[in-house]
């Protein structure tokens, strides 16, 4: 299975996302509504398409769908865990936090991939993405043990997400 070029990929992904949004907003699968949606989304893509280069990093291979579902499952699990973690810290009288700013490294190449990774890090237990500089993401970590270096922080914060995101983004 060959991968689609980024230029074609960004139109295909943009069109699919637009149609999904249209169907969700209209709430029907009626033929005429869908036809109107195709026209509207095609017109939108014609105008906005060249500026959607950020979508070019999506890998259009069948296994990407599986990876996306696996990522979403992992993400929501991490989101719920993050909230229980926050609840525990906020409610305990001694306020057990030990914050520090650490760096993690990412192997993701596309801007969309890095955006998604940074967003995921923000919504998971005790970590907040502060800045993205090249292949480094600056993370405020609420519970950093002393002497945490780049490698161990990368392993504990980013590696799990990156493995899942890599399945559908470059």
């Amino acid at each position: 299975m060959t991968e689609v070029s980024p230029r074609l990929s960004q139109y295909v992904v943009g069109f699919a996302a637009g149609m999904l949004l249209w169907v969700l907003l209209t709430g029907t699968s009626d033929g005429q509504e869908l036809l109107a949606g195709v026209l509207v989304v095609a017109a939108t893509m014609a105008v906005a398409g060249p500026r959607l280069a950020i979508l070019g990093g999506v890998r259009l291979v069948p296994s990407a769908a599986v990876a996306l579902v696996a990522y979403l499952g992992y993400f929501f699990y991490a989101l719920v865990r993050a909230n229980l973690d926050v609840a525990r810290r906020v409610l305990s009288p001694s306020l057990p936090i030990r914050p520090a700013v650490v760096e993690v490294r990412t192997g993701l190449k596309s801007r969309l991939g890095r955006l998604l990774l940074a967003n995921s890090i923000t919504l998971t237990p005790g970590t907040l993405s502060v800045d993205v500089r090249g292949d480094r993401i600056l993370v405020h970590w609420i519970d950093a043990s002393p002497g945490t270096d780049l490698e161990s922080a990368t392993r504990r914060i980013a590696a799990g997400f990156e493995r899942h995101i890599r399945g559908f983004l470059q």
Binding site: L79, N83, A87, R89, V90, L95, T122, L123, G126, H140
Partner: peptide
């Protein structure tokens, strides 16, 4: 929370969920 970064942390996560 003691400072702005930790406040953003709790605010974002709890309010999103």
């Amino acid at each position: 929370m003691p400072d702005v970064f930790n406040r953003i942390q709790t605010g974002t996560k709890a309010v999103t969920l």
